[in-house]
């Protein structure tokens, strides 16, 4: 679900003829790695931890490479090459404790003219000089430039994808129409270069496409995607209402053997904690949440610690939201935490 972020800012388009998310539509690969242009929005969301530097100077750095596709319907009669319905937005950020805050950059363009597009059939999404694509050897590649640092990374899958929810139908609210098609691809091995220096690490790819997501009462959500040290993967999320209570929740756990458990709303209990106040925006973020989940009728509790407190992202100047997206650790695993709707309600 998550990462609606920028898409939230896009308009509610009345009378739009979007494809509808329905249960019982099986995931097919590699076609579902590619774009689904009939849906209103979709994203390719790569987050990961890499080891930067060598020897005693080596440190952990968080990376995000995210591509969004949004469909803006227009009259079919327009014969212009510019009359594209698809807008490609990309965002990348580096969380380096040495810097203390995020370095980030964006690209946006309407698709067309070979300058921006999202391929249907397999993964290849690009906007200007940024690109995320899959090669026939099964590896994924991402190239972005963030504040002068070029990230040129290859992601090698080590496990199959997790098909979230009900066979890929992931409900996001009390109504059955508040849902997305959702799969995750954890435990991808990272190799490549950052600013010309070799890096290695582990990544997580989140893929969702949908046309309707948010419950009208929802003001924001929290999301966690954690690669477990033992090879497993943990996904947790909840939708919050104005009182801070969960409207909906979910997630999944897959162990090292590949056995996957899908969480129902009542299986997740998210407690905000570790409030950090941003000196720039003044917003307060619960960057050290404690999350409990029930698996096999047993409640587990995990405590989340951020790589650094300041991983706030402000896209309000471009019409987007103010949110927090950062590298985090838990005992026995690490991944990314996303917090939205804490400064002002997110609206669609």
């Amino acid at each position: 679900m998550r990462r609606l972020l920028l898409l939230l800012a896009l308009p509610l388009l009345l009378a739009a003829d979007f494809a509808v998310v329905r249960p019982g539509v099986p995931m097919r690969f590699p076609a579902d790695h590619g774009a689904h242009p009939a849906f209103r929005t979709e994203w390719w969301y790569v987050t990961g931890w890499v080891k930067s530097g060598v020897g005693t100077g080596a440190r952990d750095v968080g990376i995000q490479i995210t591509f969004f596709r949004t469909r803006v319907p227009r009259l079919a009669t327009n014969r212009s090459r510019f009359a594209s319905e698809q807008v490609i937005f990309a965002h990348a950020a580096i969380a380096d404790p040495a810097t203390g805050k995020l370095k980030h950059a964006t690209r946006i363009a309407r698709s067309g003219f070979g300058l921006a597009q999202a391929l249907v059939g397999d993964l290849d999404v690009a906007v200007d000089d940024w690109r995320l694509w899959r090669t026939p050897d099964g590896r994924l590649h991402g190239v972005v430039v963030v504040e002068g640092q070029r990230l040129d990374l290859a992601f090698t899958p080590s496990v199959p994808v997790i098909v979230q929810g009900l066979g890929g139908y992931s409900q996001k609210g009390p109504s059955a129409s508040e849902a997305s098609h959702y799969y995750s691809w954890p435990q991808m091995k990272i190799s490549g270069t950052m600013a010309g220096k070799p890096v290695t690490g582990t990544a997580w790819l989140d893929r969702e496409w949908s046309s309707t997501l948010l419950n009208p009462r929802a003001v924001g959500w929290d999301w966690l995607g954690l690669n477990l040290d033992n090879g497993g993967a943990l996904t947790l999320f909840r939708m919050r209402d104005a009182s801070g209570r969960a409207l909906w929740a979910g997630g999944s756990h897959r162990d090292a053997t590949g056995k996957t458990v899908i969480f129902q709303p009542q299986d997740v209990d998210w407690q905000a904690a570790g409030w950090w106040k941003s000196p720039r925006s003044g917003a307060r973020w619960p960057v050290r949440p404690v999350v409990r989940y029930r698996m096999n009728n047993r409640w587990q509790s995990i405590e989340i610690k951020p790589l650094m407190p300041d991983q706030e992202l402000d896209s309000r100047a471009g019409g987007g939201p103010l949110y927090w997206e950062g590298a985090v650790t838990m005992k026995g695993g690490r991944g990314y935490l996303e917090l939205t709707g804490y400064s002002a309600p997110l609206r669609m």
Partner: peptide, 14 residues
């Protein structure tokens, strides 16, 4: 409502 295109009202709205 704000700047067009990236804001609440995209400029390529017809």
């Amino acid at each position: 409502g704000g700047l067009s295109g990236v804001g609440t009202r995209p400029g390529w709205q017809e």
